[in-house]
């Protein structure tokens, strides 16, 4: 009946957003990887600095867990995938997912919800747009990393990069789905952003501190989504199936909550 009009319009509305974010993410990726040759050549000096860092700090800046930052995979992990990329992707993904509640709050969905379309269908199509935009950003990252790595002679396999980018996409989708669910439960953009952001930061800190060997966090390590975004493992051996499963399951569960919630409450009038 509707030929995914809502999905198509949601993507078309974000064309400029996608171009801007793609340029931004690709630019930062290129900039970070471009330093690889000089970083590699100064390995001895840098090693001294890094060795003097406490384990918890090393872990928080993506150099913990026995990563050798002077290996190609270690460098990519610490400089791109461990912190900078997920930070950008999560800001983008959570923002786009929370925009659904934002549109409701501003009354922009009043005429859409009065159309012959089920609320779940409308929210589902908006979710597909979040997945498409998040996936597109990860694809751009994949291409940018691959091209820059080749240009500066950073030796990393296409398959490794593919797994790392796929993990980043799954991580983005899972927190975006949490944001969508919080928005669908409350109809408030600020809550949608706050819930997903707080969870993301908490998850990052828990995983980092657990990896640094701080006992209190080790027991809850496996509950943290960032633990399942094991990018070093992804770059070295591919993403573990268990991690993929956890990220997919959390995304599906949060989406399920969103679809359930949107169908059972009053909609905001704006």
């Amino acid at each position: 009946m509707s030929d995914f009009i809502v999905l198509r319009r949601a993507i078309s509305d974000r064309r400029r957003w996608l171009i801007g974010w793609s340029l931004g993410v690709a630019g930062l990726v290129v900039l970070n990887i471009a330093f690889w040759p000089s970083f590699r050549d100064k390995a001895d000096d840098m090693n001294e600095i890094i060795d003097n860092m406490p384990d918890s700090v090393k872990s928080l800046v993506g150099m913990g867990g026995g990563v050798d930052p002077f290996s190609p995979v270690g460098y990519l992990s610490s400089q791109v995938y461990a912190f900078m990329l997920p930070l950008l992707l999560l800001i983008g993904g959570i923002g786009v997912a929370a925009a659904v509640a934002g549109d409701e709050e501003r009354g922009l969905l009043e005429t859409s919800f009065a159309l012959p379309i089920r609320r779940r269908r409308l929210l589902g199509e908006r979710w597909l747009s979040v997945m498409a935009l998040g996936g597109a950003l990860c694809l751009v990252t994949f291409v940018a990393v691959l091209a820059t790595a080749r240009a500066v002679d950073l030796d990393v396999g296409v398959g490794s990069l593919w797994w790392a980018s796929a993990s980043a996409a799954l991580l983005t989708w899972s927190f975006a789905a949490v944001s969508l669910a919080a928005g669908a439960l409350t109809g408030r953009r600020s809550i949608a952003i706050a819930v997903a952001s707080v969870l993301a930061v908490a998850s990052y800190v828990v995983t980092s501190l657990a990896d640094a060997g701080i006992g209190a966090f080790r027991s809850v390590r496996s509950l943290s989504l960032f633990t399942h975004y094991d990018v070093l493992h992804s770059l070295q051996q591919g993403t573990p199936p268990w991690s993929l499963l956890v990220l997919v399951a959390v995304t599906a569960a949060a989406l399920g909550v969103a679809l359930w919630a949107i169908d059972r409450r009053d909609l905001r009038a704006g």
């Binding site: 509707s2 009009i5 501003r106 922009l108 159309l115 012959p116 379309i117 009038a269």
Partner: peptide
């Protein structure tokens, strides 16, 4: 049903023709 809300908020970026086209498509 055709509905005109009292507090009408329409997406600022779209033209009327785009909005009406979308709505016609959803209505089939």
């Amino acid at each position: 049903v055709g509905y005109l809300p009292g507090d009408l908020n329409l997406p600022a970026r779209l033209t009327g023709r785009q909005l009406l086209g979308d709505h016609a498509a959803v209505r089939g």
